[in-house]
């Protein structure tokens, strides 16, 4: 008998048809992301994909205490979107979520679609595009970039929490008026932790290998064609 650790949505929280419907956008986004990654993943970026996914998996194990006997953990969607670009980030999130569900019994199997939708499609893809769009409006400075990373991290957590609430409400598990304020209230705090970790991680990469940040110099229009080639080693 396992203790239920609902880091992600477990099976049983969502009605069958809500769970099934969530598979549609999740599968579509991952399929497109895989196609895009063929063009975007030039050789030196492949280890970056691996290590970003690994970092997200590890960080999601680190629950930090927040108010009222509740804990929060890192999500990583915004960080992935910054390092990998929104589409490849969605694939990375799906890899992490699938391994968590199948190997660690963390998050449901039928709920895989919903968890991928909430964290990969909404967290990495939509918020990722939103961050790019915002970045194009702001001056190209390190501070502005880090501010966008922090805000995007917070927003990805909040948007995921809101999406989860809607899915639970449509499933008739709990009324929206009950679950939405509760989820947003808790995750407003979780999101602050998320923002701190994301800014620290992005700052560390900016300081060591800024060329590995996929979205650094990329304009929205260029995205999906090909990512810039990192400077060759030792050049």
């Amino acid at each position: 008998m396992f203790e239920l650790l609902a880091l992600h949505i477990p099976d049983g929280f969502l009605s069958n048809w809500v769970a099934a419907l969530c598979w549609l956008p999740a599968t579509a986004a991952v399929a497109i992301g895989l196609r895009k990654s063929t063009a975007e993943l030039i050789e030196p970026r492949i280890p970056v994909l691996g290590v970003t996914a690994a970092f997200i998996f590890a960080a999601q194990m680190l629950n930090f205490p927040i108010a009222g006997g509740t804990s929060g953990h890192f999500l990583g969607a915004a960080l992935a979107a910054i390092l990998l670009g929104p589409w490849v980030a969605c694939v990375a999130m799906a890899v992490v979520i699938a391994i968590q569900a199948f190997l660690f019994a963390d998050g449901g199997i039928t709920a895989l679609g919903a968890n991928t939708l909430n964290m990969g499609v909404i967290g990495a893809l939509l918020v990722g595009y939103l961050m790019l769009w915002t970045r194009d409006l702001l001056p190209k400075r390190r501070g502005a970039f880090l501010a966008i990373a922090g805000a995007g991290a917070w927003l990805a957590v909040m948007a995921g929490a809101a999406a989860t609430s809607f899915e639970l409400a449509i499933s008739d598990t709990v009324p929206l008026g009950t679950v939405l304020p509760a989820m947003l209230g808790v995750h407003a705090l979780v999101g602050i932790g998320e923002a701190i970790i994301t800014v620290a991680a992005v700052g560390a990469v900016l300081a060591t290998r800024p060329d590995l940040i996929a979205v650094r110099d990329l304009t929205l229009r260029e995205l999906g064609r090909s990512l810039p080639t990192p400077t060759p080693e030792g050049a």
Binding site: L4, L5, A6, L7, P10, D11, F13, T70, H73, V179
Partner: peptide, 23 residues
């Protein structure tokens, strides 16, 4: 790491749908 329930788990516990979760 903190063993306290995370955001979703805590809300599920308080709002009474935690036991609906299953493997």
């Amino acid at each position: 790491a903190s063993a306290s329930p995370d955001g979703l788990e805590k809300v599920a516990e308080k709002k009474g749908f935690l036991e609906e979760g299953r493997l």
